[in-house]
Computed example of a mutant assay.
Amino acid sequence: MDYVPDHVLRTLWYIDLMARYGNPLPWGDVDRYAQQAVPRDAHRKSPFGGLGEIIGRDGMVIHRPDPVAAYLKGVGWVLEDSGVAKLTPAGRTVLVACGEAADELAAEDPEVADVALDPQDPLVYVQLTRRLQKAGAGLLVDAYFKADSLVWLIESTNLRRVLISSRQPRSERDRQTIAVALATVPNGSDVEVRHTADPSLHDRCVIGEKGDVQLLGSSVNGVGKHLTAVITPSSDISQVYRKKYEALWGDAAKVEPRPMQA
């Protein structure tokens, strides 16, 4: 549905998600979420994502999306009830009309199936976020994770551990940028990032809080650029991944938060 802006639809989905999992989104946080830039294919002026303007590949400045809370309330898609945002029947109809299957929205655990993340899909990061929500306070294994994705990780998922590689030529600079982001972005201290030079770190995966495993076809930085997939392996394969990467995590060095130098 081309006449519903992507960030409006993304916000509707997030309001619905938070309510269904018993953590309704405070009304004051609606625009904060809507205006948070997702980590798409762009180079940011700031050394970490989610703050200020971004510069696209063509060099044009892309401004933060417009606020949506007043609009959503005005058109009757969302209401403010006791200080929190709630989806109305009309808002849910918009979600369904924009491609969200009604039975998927109502399911207790809609993310059991594998999914392809198409870069042409304007909701590609919504799909990724929905899958990662399943992992709870789990571990993201992503050798190429960048500071640009940290704000999105904190605000849109419950993942609280990230394992990165320190073998790449630019890894030292990336770690320094992540260290600044951890000390600077809101709630950065909630996430622990560790790095390892072990050459066996090459696959991307998410190990859930309860031990479930999801395999990622690319780094989260690559979602939105290339066709990729999120796959749930069999239990025996999951056990191998879980054992391997929890061991690497235990031996890895912590990226210590570092305030930005004046």
Rank of each mutant, 00 (worst) to 15 (best):
G56T: 01
V185N: 09
H226T: 15
K146F: 05
A135M: 06
I55V: 13
G52F: 13
D198V: 06
S149I: 00
E172Q: 02
R175H: 02
L216W: 14
D174N: 02
S219A: 09
T93A: 15
V38R: 05
M60N: 15
G217A: 08
D148F: 02
G83I: 02
A70E: 15
T88W: 14
H63K: 09
M60P: 01
L72P: 05
S156R: 12
L132Y: 10
V94D: 02
D81S: 12
V185M: 13
V230K: 03
A183R: 00
Q36D: 13
D58H: 11
A116R: 13
G138Q: 05
R173Y: 05
Y241I: 06
T196Q: 01
I178K: 00
Q214R: 14
L139G: 05
A102I: 10
P119E: 08
L51N: 15
L159E: 09
Q214T: 03
D148K: 04
E246L: 04
R160E: 08
R160Y: 07
P199L: 09
V191W: 00
R44D: 06
P47E: 08
P67E: 00
C205W: 08
I62Q: 08
R130D: 00
Y3G: 01
G222C: 04
Y71E: 09
P24I: 03
N158I: 05
